[in-house]
């Protein structure tokens, strides 16, 4: 069914809660190695779209394809569970509120899934945790519980946890929105590093500067539709739609 031209392909995504339409026929293609930012006011549906990609918020209509496989295909419950668990192993997700497991150390947060799902031995998983935590600059806190880490440190561990499953795609859902301003940079730095390694990333963000500096493409969403889409140089500097201009004016003024 898929022409498999695109790495991530969202076709006519629809999502409604009762009569409330959150996503209205959104289509989006992302190529391997691309970094796409989704911006827009709260309630625009950007997080819902992101969460639909790994079926955390199932669509009510439309299709999501990843690397030639349909993510949200219709299957009997048990088969679907098996399918989606397999799909999700290839999609890392980072949340606004980190969602680290508080009863596990940084190391255990990282090793849990690879040991459980990929049957890594304790030694292999430990090595992996050391590599991944080193990459995000958290090796010195490897045996700390999340309660003893700052927000920025927690988020970096959460990124390491996602990377440990060796995902093909990373989703960031306002990864820095809950952080104190002085902690934002350390997380942005890690995301930049991933960008340099050509990780495919879809980033929902409120940070226009960051979006402008690392992304190949920016989507501006409002009220469940993509209002404008293009390279950051166009969307940020020369938006064609009045709605985009208005949003950027408010947002950049508010951020300054």
């Amino acid at each position: 069914m898929s022409d498999q031209d695109h790495f991530v392909e969202i076709r006519y995504a629809q999502k409604s809660y009762g009569s409330l339409e959150v996503l209205k026929d959104i289509s989006l293609n992302v190529e391997r190695g691309q970094i796409v930012a989704i911006i827009g006011p709260s309630g625009s549906g950007k997080s819902t779209l992101l969460r639909a990609i790994n079926d955390l918020d199932p669509l009510t209509g439309g299709e999501v394809w990843l690397d030639g496989v349909q993510v949200n295909k219709s299957l009997p419950h048990r088969q679907y569970e098996k399918h989606i668990n397999e799909m999700r192993q290839h999609v890392g997700m980072v949340f606004q509120h980190f969602n680290l497991f508080p009863h596990m150390t940084a190391r255990e947060n990282v090793t849990m899934a690879p040991m459980l799902l990929k049957r890594l031995s304790k030694a292999e998983a430990d090595k992996l945790a050391e590599e991944q935590l080193d990459k995000v600059g958290m090796l010195d806190r490897i045996d700390y519980y999340p309660s003893r880490l700052s927000g920025g440190q927690k988020q970096r561990v959460a990124i390491a946890r996602a990377l440990a499953m060796e995902p093909k795609l990373m989703l960031f859902d306002e990864a820095t929105s809950a952080l104190d301003p002085e902690l934002v940079d350390e997380v942005n730095l890690v995301m930049k590093k991933l960008a340099e390694e050509h990780m495919t990333m879809i980033i929902v963000t409120h940070e226009m500067d960051f979006a402008a500096s690392v992304c190949d493409r920016v989507l501006f969403m409002d009220q469940g539709v993509v209002v404008e889409e293009g390279p950051p140089s166009v969307v940020f500097k020369n938006p064609t739609k009045e709605r985009t201009r208005e949003f950027l004016r408010k947002h950049l003024a508010g951020a300054a």
Binding site: E81, E86, R88, M93, N99, F101, A158, A162, M165
Partner: peptide
Amino acid sequence: DKGQREAARTLGLSQWQ
């Protein structure tokens, strides 16, 4: 917090895991 289950599911854990 339901974010805990979500984080686990996005790593690929089943509902039971």
